[in-house]
Design a protein around this nucleic acid. Structure first.
Length: 554
DNA sequence: GCCGTTTTCGGCCCGACTGTTTTCAGTCG
């Protein structure tokens, strides 16, 4: 609507309806038109549209606008830092409707000449386009794993398929994936080719497919898929080869010996057998990066990796007090029903006004509600937390008196995000040194495949966390996975505790912790090093001690 | 297109930042 010059206020009403619907926690499908109209921001027209979507899968306005919007423009709209107004202008004035032409226009200095643009904007735009192009075809791990699991299920049901497995980056649980790779041992490849060719969701890449592999695109996600064919006998060898990062596969284990060489000696029956033949303990797939894995293996000191069952509670969550979808009670009950011992609620602080951040008087109200719920739900416990904005100078968002009222504080940067490394690092260092900071939230602010995140001196930030006893979160949202697992390893070596936090904005968000566990495992994270694998008793004590020490430092 | 009256029209969430302007528009969280 913004691209096609629709009335600004009409656009606003759609936006406010979307805002309201995103927080609406019942199914829209069971509501009639009158009931739909009772939702805030939904009037007669939108109620009818929603009803139509439910009946027919779409509605006129959307179909019309989609038809006159090139795919490339939609891609351009995702450029970080550029919104509909600027994209519309580029489209109209320069007739550019795809990223490639846009990049050329930047290089030819055509963007800076446009009204409302300038040199800096052009540089920023070029960077954004290059970032976008460099990740084209990649998808997030969550989508990749789901797609892979569906493919595995389908392939297993095909006659003559003997063995199937997820392999390569998905098996190593990398945070972003291209392509999704599946290893198959089948007697009849024709049937698999038929399965791909017949499926409307797939676009077979005949040119790049051959006897060894079948390449296609999964259209709804624009995801690249590669089915690798092998024989039943060679399945384990191929699985090993395709799973491991080349640095793991080709590393010199001893003079002239590597896993790759070992595989040439014969067909193995299991991966454990391969490691045994190399004189190594078994190495989990997600560790096979050729980074720290082989040294651990050589010293027979592979850590016991964290598992979902090790997690005893869930910290860093939002409720309807700020921008969450579910009430405090719903968040608490669902957490309890999942078998956890405690929940940490950390709604947005007051500076985050866009997210309905908590003013002081609302904090008080929330704390009263938490006290009441804690009586009702005991021994389950809700901890009083806050996700405090880290302000520009690195200070936190409330007075010391208010900060004292929390059991724990997640300190995070939300805006502004375009800082240079020195500014961002200093901002974080100040927040880390604040005695009220318990956990450092999403340290870089990145959104995988979408936003780079502000640059920070990782080592300086982690060293400071070690010095001040600040826990670092692995924000488990599949778009964040921040702190990056490569630096989680550094943090662990410095003795910093890691908390796997879902940043849940609704009850279902809790399940994202799985993605945090996945990347934690890549870093060799153990239960012992994971803050929220502490029991209720242990974590209560930790929060108490931490607060005492904070108060003594004031 | 929605909402709430000053009740069928008039106004529409916020605050900060950046880069472009030369007083403000666009973007973001």
């Amino acid at each position: 609507m913004e691209l096609h010059g629709e009335n600004d206020f009409k656009i606003k009403s759609y936006q406010s309806a979307v805002n309201s619907l995103e927080r609406f926690n019942q199914s829209l499908a069971v509501l009639d038109i009158n009931e739909l109209q009772e939702i805030e921001g939904v009037g007669k027209s939108l109620a009818q549209s929603i009803y139509q979507i439910n009946e027919q899968g779409s509605f006129e306005l959307f179909d019309d606008l989609s038809a006159k919007t090139p795919d490339g423009i939609l891609e351009m709209m995702q450029l970080s830092g550029f919104g509909p107004k600027k994209i519309k202008l580029i489209w109209e004035k320069l007739n550019i409707d795809n990223l490639e032409d846009l990049l050329t226009a930047c290089k030819e200095n055509k963007i800076a000449a446009l009204k409302g643009f300038g040199d800096k904007t052009q540089v920023k735009l070029q960077e954004a386009v290059e970032f976008k192009l460099s990740w084209r075809g990649y998808i997030h791990f969550r989508e990749a794993e789901k797609l892979a699991e569906k493919l595995i299920l389908d392939l297993k049901s095909i006659d003559g398929v003997n063995e199937v497995s997820i392999t390569s980056d998905v098996r190593r649980k990398m945070e972003v994936i291209k392509p999704v790779e599946i290893l198959v041992a089948a007697e009849n490849k024709a049937k698999i080719i038929q399965y791909v060719a017949k499926n409307d969701a797939f676009d077979l890449d005949k040119k790049n497919s051959g006897p060894l592999s079948l390449k296609f695109t999964f259209k709804p996600l624009k995801a690249e898929v590669n089915i690798i064919f092998t024989s039943k006998d060679q399945f384990i060898n191929e699985l090993f080869k395709t799973t491991a990062h080349p640095n793991h596969l080709n590393a010199e284990l001893e003079k002239g010996k590597s896993f790759n060489n070992l595989l040439k000696e014969g067909n193995f029956k299991s991966e454990a057998e391969i490691y045994e033949a190399a004189g190594f303990p078994y190495i989990e797939p997600e560790l096979r990066e050729g980074l720290w894995d082989l040294n651990w293996a050589k010293e027979n000191a592979i850590p016991k990796l964290i598992e979902m069952d090790d997690l005893k509670g869930i910290l860093h969550n939002h409720s309807t007090y700020s921008d969450g979808k579910n009430s405090l009670e719903e968040m608490a009950r669902y957490c309890k029903d999942l078998g956890y011992e405690y929940l940490g609620i950390s709604d947005h602080s007051k500076t985050a006004s866009y997210a309905n951040g908590l003013q002081e008087f609302r904090i008080k109200k929330q704390h009263e509600e938490i006290d009441a719920l804690n009586e009702k739900l005991a021994p389950f416990k809700i901890f009083k937390g806050i996700e405090s904005d880290i302000l520009n100078d690195g200070s936190l968002d409330y007075s010391n008196e208010v900060m004292e009222s929390f059991d724990f504080v997640v300190s995070s940067i939300h805006s502004p995000l375009n800082m240079d490394e020195k500014t961002a690092t200093n901002r974080l260092l100040n927040a880390i040194a604040n005695p009220f900071t318990t956990i450092l939230g999403h340290p870089t602010g990145r959104l995988l495949l979408q936003r780079k995140g502000y640059p920070i001196n990782h080592k300086a930030v982690i060293d400071a966390c070690a010095e001040y006893g600040v826990i670092i979160e692995i924000n488990a949202h599949p778009w964040r996975l921040d702190l990056d697992w490569r630096y989680v390893r550094y943090a662990l070596d410095k003795g910093v505790l890691i908390s796997i936090n879902p940043d849940a904005h609704e009850t279902n968000g809790y399940h994202d912790m799985y993605y945090g566990v996945c990347v934690g495992r890549k870093a060799g994270l153990t239960a012992h090093e994971t803050f929220n694998s502490k029991s209720l008793e242990e974590i209560s004590r930790y929060f108490n001690d931490r607060k005492k020490s904070a108060l003594s430092k004031l």
